[in-house]
């Protein structure tokens, strides 16, 4: 599903984030991404949904080489990828419902479908009552759950979650993890970046660790 071949990535001159990494994530896998702050977790995700390009090397997503995609095709690719951004990226002038609905509006779904899907997803993340609220009226954790809902609402093939539990207390974190596991069971490929060791241990799935520009599989006993 996600393949990196000898990918180098650096920002500007000399600041190398990744050095010749190879990465293979199969369809339907659930993978944790760990590494200390600044190691490149967000950068890796940005390369997957084409917000950043690698300096050299090839990236193949769902069988397609992203280097050869047009802007329009990149847009189509992104519709199959749900992203929970580390900084949420909510539109402050839209309410919670509308923020989640844009993913579906971009697809041109009928109004009734949008209504139904958004409402269902809101209840999955426990935010039914905030449907009409605006992002700035919500707590950090609530905003984070809106971001999660927006990524999930479209049943994406790939879910990229960049520290989706960073602002949540442990019990909510576990709820979100269970939500992701449910989605995973239905066949979605999930890549989730996190700092929380406890979550990684609890989930007991494949863990990729970024260290000094390299990416390694953490051996599990």
């Amino acid at each position: 599903m996600i393949q990196f071949y000898q990918v180098n990535k650096s920002y500007g001159e000399g600041h190398e984030v990744f050095h010749a990494i190879d990465l293979h994530i199969d369809r339907g896998e659930f993978v944790f991404l760990t590494g200390k702050s600044g190691s490149g977790k967000t950068t890796l995700m940005k390369m997957i949904f084409c917000q950043e390009r690698p300096n050299t090397g090839q990236i193949v997503i769902d069988g397609r080489n992203v280097a050869r995609m047009t802007r329009t095709n990149i847009a189509f690719l992104r519709r199959t990828i749900g992203v929970v951004f580390q900084d949420f990226k909510l539109i402050n002038s839209l309410n919670v419902f509308e923020n989640i609905a844009i993913t579906l509006k971009v697809l041109g779904l009928p109004k009734t479908d949008i209504q139904q899907k958004v409402t269902r997803t809101l209840s999955r993340v426990g935010l039914e009552r905030f449907s009409k609220a605006f992002p700035l009226e919500l707590s950090g954790g609530e905003q984070q759950r809106v971001a999660i809902a927006r990524a999930l609402v479209n049943d994406p093939k790939i879910l990229l979650a960049d520290e989706p539990t960073g602002n949540l207390d442990p019990s909510l974190s576990i709820e979100i993890l269970e939500l992701f596991q449910n989605i995973h069971i239905r066949g979605t490929t999930i890549l989730m970046a996190t700092h929380e060791k406890s979550l990684v241990e609890r989930a007991n799935v494949r863990e990729l660790h970024i260290d000094a520009g390299r990416i390694v599989d953490v051996e599990k006993i």
Binding site: F49, Q51, R71, A75, R78, L90
Partner: peptide, 16 residues
Amino acid sequence: KDEIGILQLVGATPSM
């Protein structure tokens, strides 16, 4: 700018 950026990230085509 932010809004347009977000729209692009959730898959809005240039023509949208």
